[in-house]
């Protein structure tokens, strides 16, 4: 089976005042479709950097990253934006919802970039909210939701465009264990055979990593199997 994510010899070097830091050091990795991959490792080991490059919001110093048939590392800024819109869903540690928009409107945001009718958008938003179990909170503002609910809205926003890839950087970092479980269960469902999304999650929490199908450890920019 061909991998959905193929990373070859990926390197990211930062230079600060003559000192070079290798955030990623020749990383090679394949991720299959439908995997729920947990990335672990100490702080500063390069987890976020790897996730950002796969998701197309950061660029490597060397090596390549292919997602599906697209070599992400070769796209221009503007091509990348369109590619992200259609292929990647983002979930962050701090939920990053727009405070002046309702849950419904936050989920609708990525759809505004697509050429869809109002009815189609409505249908997609409602499906996504239903999937995260928040249909009854659609018209609440973020500040009227709990942290766990906010993160579930963020997941709905990430999946509403039906992307193949979901990237989550410490999605449970700000949540209590009950809310964390809810979020992790949703991510697990998304990667199930029925839905078939590929989920890549960075976490510090071994319990969270337990929800994944595979766990990888990064240390000083290198993969430790």
């Amino acid at each position: 089976m061909t991998p959905i994510v193929a990373i070859r010899d990926l390197t990211k070097v930062y230079e600060r005042g003559g000192v070079t830091v290798a955030a990623l050091d020749h990383v090679t990795l394949d991720i299959a479709q439908g995997e729920f991959l947990a990335l672990m490792g100490p702080s500063g080991s390069g987890k976020s950097t790897l996730l950002h490059i796969i998701a197309g919001i950061d660029r490597p110093t060397g090596g390549s990253c292919q997602v599906g048939k697209v070599t992400v590392t070769e796209l221009t800024e503007s091509e990348l934006a369109d590619w992200r819109n259609q292929n990647v869903g983002f979930v962050f540690q701090s939920f990053n919802l727009i405070p002046v928009l309702s849950a419904y409107e936050n989920v609708e945001l990525p759809l505004l970039l697509m050429n869809l009718s109002g009815t189609k958008r409505k249908q997609l938003v409602n499906t996504a909210l239903e999937l995260v179990g928040l249909s009854d909170r659609a018209h609440h503002l973020p500040k009227q939701l709990s942290g766990g609910q906010e993160q579930r809205v963020a997941i709905a926003r990430a999946i509403v465009t039906d992307p193949a890839l979901i990237v989550a950087d410490e999605p449970t970092g700000n949540l209590d264990s009950h809310s964390a479980d809810e979020v992790l269960q949703i991510l697990q469902t998304l990667s199930s055979k029925a839905i078939g999304k590929t989920v890549i999650m960075v976490t510090h929490d071994p319990r969270a990593a337990g929800y994944g199908t595979r766990t990888l450890h990064l240390e000083k920019g290198r993969l430790k199997e």
């Binding site: 998701a55 919001i57 800024e77 503007s78 934006a81 369109d82 992200r84 819109n85 259609q86 983002f90 962050f92 990053n96 727009i98 945001l109 990525p110 970039l113 926003r157």
Partner: peptide
């Protein structure tokens, strides 16, 4: 600024 970064991440172009 952060919200605009999120918009950019989810696919909004610079010109938008």
């Amino acid at each position: 600024f952060r919200e605009l970064a999120i918009l950019k991440a989810i696919g909004y172009q610079r010109r938008e």
